[in-house]
Amino acid sequence: MIQVRGLTKSYGKQKVLGHIDLQLQKGEVTAILGPSGSGKTTLLRCLNFLEKPNAGEIAIGDVTVNCKGAGKRDIHKLRQKTAMVFQNYHLFKHKTALENVMEGLVVVQKLLKADARARSQLMLDKVGLADKQDAYPSQLSGGQQQRVGIARALALNPEVVLFDEPTSALDPERVGEVLEVIRSIAREGITMIIVTHEMAFARDVSNHVVFMDDGAIVEEGPPQELFGSPKEERTRQFLKRMTQEWSYTI
């Protein structure tokens, strides 16, 4: 239901993504792993055209877009199929938690205010922030802000939610609450792509793992396989390094 074919992206002369092919099933949680600078963020941002790919094709649900000739309409359609959770939350600072969640429903999906409000309250409740609906982002902790970010994405009822390192800007003691929320929505069968450095979480929550290096997909497969018996040397090296780092921080 999500299909990427021949996606490439360069910044000037620097090739960041070289011919990415990817296919994900509905209801699947995909984790994207890889060293820093391997192009994970760029790939995610190409899917909703926050970065314009140079070439390739993206199909999400019933929308297929050829990246080369993509116009405003195509981009808008694609964005309506996706929602994004950002590393630094990027909440609308002048709006309350509830208004943040409502914004897309009212402005883009043209829901009635009352319906949008009801739906948004439901979403805030889902991420455990029903009592914070009137708080401004500046009055919330990082973990709470990120949960609002997740509610904002879920409210849109997208085909796929894109997460870019949702916990890496958080204080260590706040990481757990956000991962817990993501885990609970994963159980509801919402399609997600998660870029993360949390190996244990990726292993635990995903159905599919993609390992990237140097702008290409090196290896992909179910988590048991990729973590248990990686085929590629680069994957092995990376996982070894990550688990070492992980045990140091304990």
Binding site: N48, E103, V107
Partner: peptide, 27 residues
């Protein structure tokens, strides 16, 4: 007004005009 909020507005599907009027302008 940080660029990230504009990107968030685009990501929820807002047009450039809406992102400017509803997110950037008030702030």
């Amino acid at each position: 007004v940080d660029r990230g909020q504009v990107e968030a507005a685009y990501a929820v599907g807002m047009s450039g005009f809406h992102a400017f009027r509803r997110i950037v302008l008030p702030q």
